[in-house]
Design a protein around this nucleic acid. Structure first.
Lengths: 221, 221
DNA sequence: ATATCATTCAAGCGATGCCTTGAATGATAG
DNA sequence: CTATCATTCAAGGCATCGCTTGAATGATAT
């Protein structure tokens, strides 16, 4: 009943890939890229039931993409390390690079306008230093409170229309969200540009920004 | 169409991951990494039937990991670009790195379940002679192939859950691995006992067994 | 101890995936 | 046109996956 060593190895690799092969688990990883979370919080954010969420998390843990620790009654999950994020990013890059389907979906998101190139993190940091840019954090406010780019203003997609008048029409606006898997920033830029504002998207999201070693402001005033 | 654009995007990313989640397809990609090949050549190299091989290749093509062209009657497949290779490499790196990490983590938590006393090598040898025990080698398959206790069955930790139903519930199970500093056997025993099986750990590992002058079987059938 | 809360386990259902078998397609050679 | 070859399609069996429901576990507080 002993299988070949080679096949056993491939089975291990396949286990990791299989852990990444369900949209629900990618959602969980995206959430965990924001920071460590408990099961209940993850279930709420992703819309999964508690039990289902727990089972997905255990599958991710079996592939060692996440680790967990106890905190009182709660079990807190987090990404094992930056390699997990790298793997997710490369998966996304390959998918977007190769799949015309992805392009069509993103185009559908942008509502048919020509999406401009995203702003690199280095460029945004420079523009921030000279104060020539408005930064918009379009994630839910609890995630904003847990950490955001210094100087960024928070507005969910639902709030976006309301704060439109308060946005300068001359300065450039840069929107960001959770990261490459997240579509909030795409949608925000589409909305802003439809209203004639000069908006672009930040390349990557807050996890990538933090990964670069750039400042993150916690506990808003 | 767009029920949920976000889900649709994640579905596309998951499609790429799913394409990498079958050992057969990883074998095909490994072959293609050495150069473009026809279907028949790939089937021969991997031991798959022609039809099965063709279907796997189409799945890889759907994920845009490979592309194909016609050459006379034959269809020649090749990797789409270097990114496919990068993705395979990162998958392998993460899998191997994570397995080592699991080992380190488990070393920290030796407790967690009431571990029974390990079985001495002399006792195991006697029990083996009378056939009243199931021996489980929980090291990687290549190490198993390089030498193991005669009659031992090989199963990595990842495979353990899958072979659970095939393990006898009445006979005692003895698990061993590399030696006193290796945690595979500890973890295996913990898993088996969680499933209600009567499992214990061998004192020491294969090096100690060999050091005792006891038989070691090389070259598995 | 008992109660409570968060998480995990276990069983069942429907859907999907992998593999096999046998027939259909598409391109080339005579 | 017909025959041949490589590949693909189609249908079936069998296993696995993802989700749900309801109960069990583990840690904490009373």
């Amino acid at each position: 009943m002993s299988i070949s060593p080679k096949l056993a190895l491939l089975e291990e690799y396949a286990l990791v890939a299989r852990a990444l092969s369900a949209p629900a688990r990618l959602m969980l990883l995206e959430q965990l890229a924001q920071g460590e979370r408990g099961v209940e919080a993850l279930a709420e954010k992703t819309g999964l039931t508690i039990a289902n969420c727990s089972q997905h998390l255990q599958q991710l843990r079996r592939a060692a993409l996440v680790t967990s620790r106890r905190d009182g009654k709660a079990v807190i999950y987090r990404l094992t390390d930056a390699k997990t994020l790298e793997l997710m990013d490369l998966l996304r890059i390959v998918a977007e690079r190769n799949l015309a389907q992805v392009e069509r979906i993103l185009r559908g998101l942008s509502g048919g306008y020509d999406a401009p190139e995203p702003v690199s993190r280095a460029v945004l940091a420079a523009r921030l230093a000279e104060g020539s840019v408005t930064v918009l954090d379009v994630r839910p406010s609890d995630e904003y409170a847990a950490g955001h780019i210094p100087g960024a203003r928070n507005a969910t997609l639902a709030q976006l229309e309301q704060i439109l008048p308060t946005l300068a029409h001359d300065a450039e606006i840069v929107a960001y969200c959770r990261g490459p898997y997240c579509v909030y920033a795409h949608q925000a830029v589409a909305t802003l540009r439809r209203h004639g504002l000069n908006a672009r998207r930040l390349e990557g999201g807050l996890p990538e920004w933090r990964e670069d070693g750039r400042p993150v402001l916690i506990h808003v005033g």
